[in-house]
Each structure stands twice: as C-alpha cells, then as structure tokens.
Design a protein around this nucleic acid. Structure first.
Lengths: 124, 124
DNA sequence: CCCCAAATCAGTAATGATTACTATTTTATT
DNA sequence: AATAAAATAGTAATCATTACTGATTTGGGG
C-alpha cells in the first residue's frame, strides 16, 4: 500500500486533472472540495514532498507565487505578461542537457520559461 | 544627460562587473562600498526599474531569492542543488522562439534554468 | 481486537524577502 | 536663488511560505 495519506492523494489528483499551473493556495481551494477540513500547511508540506520526490514539478515564473505542475514530461512554459496565464509547449531537453554536460554539470531538471504576450491577449 | 541617479549608476556598475548572479541584499552590500548611506529600498526600487526597462535581467531559480544579471545576452543558467551556485552557458534562443510563435505567442525574454550538480560539487 | 510507535494532520504563530509609505534631499530648469 | 518634480533614506507594513504543537491517523505485531 502506498504510504500516501488521503490528503496527499487528493493534492496529486487535483494536479493531474488540470493543465493549469496552480499556486499552493489555489490548490488548497480545489482540494477543499473533497476534503473540507484540510489545512493550508498540509498542502504546502505535501507539495514540497511531492516536488522533492519528483512526482510533480515546481515552477517559478517570477510573479511572486510558486506554481505547481502535475505533468513532469519535458516541456517549456509560456508565461503571458499581460494576463499571467501559463501554457505548455513541448520541448526536447536533450540538446540542452548534452551541452550542459560539457560544463561538468550533471543535470536533472530543466525549467524553461518564455515571457511575452499570449495569443488571446494579442488579439485584444 | 542620463536621468540616472548616482545610486542607479552604482547598482548597474556592480551588476556589470560580476559574472555572479547576486540577490538584492548582496547587491546592497556591494553598493555600500561606494555609497555607504544607500538604503535597501533604493536598491530594490532601482533593480525593479532596471529590470522593467530591460537593462538587467531578473532570475528566479526557486531558492526563495530573486537574482539579478547584468548580462542580457542570450544564455541559460545552471543552478547547482548542492552549493547553490549559478553559472552561465551560451544558448541560442532562436529555436525556442520560433517554436513559440506557432502558438500565437509573442516572446520577449527567455529564461532557461538547468538544475543539477555543478562540476566542483561533483568532484567533492 | 487492542496496543504502540511513527507518521501525518489541523490550526496557529513566526519568518523574512519584498513592497509601501513619508518626510527629506537632490536634481533640473528658469 | 526659487521652484517643482524626482529620487532618496529610513521605517513600517505586507503576505507567501515555513515552523511549531498538541491531537489524530496509520500500520504492524501480538
């Protein structure tokens, strides 16, 4: 049996059933629908544990909030300076990873954030 | 005449004469050597202005601190999980930028952070 | 089924990087 | 020199995140 608490399962479920990149407090709100008594500290603690174990990704786009991503496949993030949205884009990390190794650096994770204006904001 | 204050000039000089990626409070310490009475708020305000105007880069590696970079040429950052150092690596952004545009996204800045273990930490 | 120890929790308090505020000083122009 | 606008030093406030504490849950024997 997995050594997961109900709380941790619920957090993981929330993250795996969205393609948004919610913050801790947004995740807190979403998990409250199935576990009304969960505490914010529990959300933070489990997000930290899941991130450390590699089951989820932590993402920092410089807006003052830590964002989380249940999709750990290799992809880049497009962050809109206007509306703040974060969208995914496939990205092969091999090229960058091999270049990195020439520096004696052993890579484990790649975080690629492109800043700009998203499609919707461009049209409005 | 540039509408730069002495304080802003000093901050820019500090950033352009190092290849480290200092935090605001480290920059504060460094600038104090030439301007002992500068205040931390002034450092933050000018870093924010310089970053907005594109003269410097703001960099977030997820260690809880905002880092700043006086080198605005296209390059990736290698962040060591062991010692916390940040080193530069040349990176052509064209490939990623052109892919991004297929999403209707207008890119202006690319932030690429590779996490792992640096050369020195690998040897110790 | 019951006990126990380890893990996790809910709730709250503390932390600390960053931002906001205010009275003063500097700067640019006339 | 006078004036108005901009920037500053110093301090107070903000708020996302982390730490803490006593209670609850969990799993493994006996």
């Amino acid at each position: 049996m997995k050594n997961y608490s109900r709380q941790r399962e619920a957090i993981l479920n929330v993250l795996r059933s969205t393609d948004t990149h919610p913050t801790a407090s947004r995740i807190y709100e979403m998990v409250q629908q199935s576990l009304p008594n969960i505490s914010l500290g529990t959300v933070y603690r489990n997000l930290s544990a899941l991130s450390k174990s590699g089951e989820i990704l932590s993402l920092d786009v410089g807006d003052g909030f830590e964002h989380f991503d249940g999709d750990i496949s290799s992809h880049a993030h497009l962050h809109c300076r206007s509306c703040g949205c974060i969208t995914d884009m496939p990205l092969k990390g091999e090229l960058i990873f091999s270049a990195v190794q020439e520096y004696g650096f052993s890579p484990d994770t790649l975080s690629c954030v492109v800043y700009g204006i998203c499609k919707d904001c461009n049209q409005n």
